[in-house]
């Protein structure tokens, strides 16, 4: 082989789109997190013979719809910034944060009015699952606020908006978790 420095082909380092790399990284993180949520979900079914005790069904349905709605506003915000519609993006994020706060408040009401204690089996799974989920909701709200502050200060446009996309993806992920947790806690009985 007579390859010398002068005859070498000049190749670029493998530089994948950094946003794409981050997106895949975030998906991998969700993948891992979903196992944590999945194990708590399995624990709910593993502890045999737990009957779902009385829960406020109207409240449960209400906060579920609020959370789904917040996903729509988050989607709107992301799509808006992708098209440089800054005003809509700001209102989308504000709406998501408010709906998130309503959801968190709803969980708080559920916790304070629950007729069972955390010392018994159903209470254990209910409070730990909703608590684990609520902690993600709260951290999601914090991240959304950070993104909103930067958006208000004039950052982000259709070319540079990964922080918003990432936070919104996280928010959707929290929603996906609730999609499974809601029926497992409120609707499934006697399984």
């Amino acid at each position: 082989m007579a390859a010398t420095a002068t005859s070498l082909p000049i190749a670029e380092h493998a530089h994948p789109d950094p946003v794409h790399l981050k997106r895949v990284g975030l998906w991998l993180f969700f993948f891992s997190e979903s196992i944590l949520f999945g194990l708590f979900l399995s624990a709910r079914f593993f502890l045999e013979g737990i009957e779902a005790e009385h829960l406020d069904q109207a409240l449960g349905l209400g906060i579920t719809i609020v959370l789904l709605l917040s996903s729509v506003t988050a989607y709107t915000a992301e799509t808006a910034i992708e098209h440089d519609r800054r005003g809509i993006a700001i209102w989308g994020l504000i709406g998501t944060i408010l709906l998130g706060l309503v959801f968190a408040a709803g969980v708080g009401v559920e916790w304070s009015t629950a007729e069972f204690s955390r010392h018994e089996a159903f209470g254990t799974v209910f409070f730990s699952m909703t608590g684990l989920h609520a902690s993600h909701v709260v951290s999601g709200i914090v991240l959304l606020v950070l993104a909103l502050i930067q958006l208000l200060r004039g950052r982000f446009n259709s070319k540079d908006h990964w922080p918003i996309s990432g936070v919104v993806m996280y928010w959707h992920f929290v929603d996906v978790v609730w999609v499974f947790y809601y029926p497992a806690l409120y609707l499934v009985q006697g399984v």
Partner: peptide
């Protein structure tokens, strides 16, 4: 969950 992940995420 599929709908959210496919379209929203």
């Amino acid at each position: 969950a599929g709908l959210i992940m496919w379209f929203f995420m």
